[in-house]
């Protein structure tokens, strides 16, 4: 669902760039405070990881295929939506500048939708629902991050006058509501598997252990 060049007027593209730059400022600060010196290598390998899993085709019901976004996964595992913003921004920059996937003028819009909005939606939903049931919360977070990101892309295209809102909501909304199910399920399985293999990496387990043990 990457917006290509030419679908957004330059003025609007600039607004999304400004939002992206402000978001990245906060995301970089978050990384500096929470991950120390480790942040550069850690965020880099995670970005490479997201890049790789986005390259995987996943089967979705009704015979089509789509791909993962991974914003909710990163946000939940790191316990912060800023991690998703930073990682997705790097991934989208590489996809845009080296692979032509998503436009250069539209890069700000793509980072705003798939990094900022998807990351915050995923994390927000998880935080709101985690007390009911953690795994259901993760599933809905994964689903919502994809769905809301797709809706925000639709809104951007509608605001640009490129694609009408009603049709956009029907096509993009339905398609990504279905892809979202796969994203949600895979996010649950992946985090469940991490919980079994390296529980120490997950934020809710970190809180229980004392800081000395954690190091």
């Amino acid at each position: 669902m990457h917006i290509p060049d030419g679908f957004l007027p330059l003025g609007q593209a600039a607004i999304y760039y400004i939002i992206t730059i402000i978001a990245l400022y906060f995301a970089l600060n978050w990384a500096k405070e929470n991950l120390d010196e480790k942040r550069v290598p850690l965020m880099a390998v995670l970005a490479a990881f997201i890049f790789a899993i986005q390259a995987m085709n996943i089967p979705i019901p009704w015979g089509t295929s789509g791909h993962m976004l991974g914003a909710a996964l990163v946000a939940i595992v790191f316990g912060s939506p800023w991690a998703a913003v930073l990682v997705l921004a790097v991934v989208l920059t590489v996809q845009g500048f080296f692979f032509g996937d998503g436009g250069i003028t539209a890069l700000g819009a793509n980072i705003t939708a798939m990094g900022l909005i998807a990351g915050f939606t995923g994390f927000g939903v998880f935080k709101a629902l985690k007390n009911l049931n953690r795994w259901v919360a993760i599933f809905i977070a994964g689903w919502a991050s994809t769905f809301v990101a797709a809706i925000s892309i639709t809104l951007m295209l509608a605001a640009a006058g490129t694609f009408p809102l009603d049709m956009g909501l029907i096509f993009m909304g339905t398609y990504h509501a279905v892809i979202g199910v796969a994203e949600g399920l895979i996010t649950v399985v992946a985090i469940l598997a991490i919980q079994n293999v390296r529980p120490d990496l997950l934020p809710w387990n970190k809180a229980k252990s004392s800081p000395e043990v954690e190091k």
């Binding site: 990881f49 899993i53 995987m56 895979i186 992946a190 598997a193 293999v197």
Partner: peptide, 8 residues
């Protein structure tokens, strides 16, 4: 999901 966990 397992593939992704492994990659992660």
């Amino acid at each position: 999901g397992f593939t992704i966990m492994m990659m992660f």
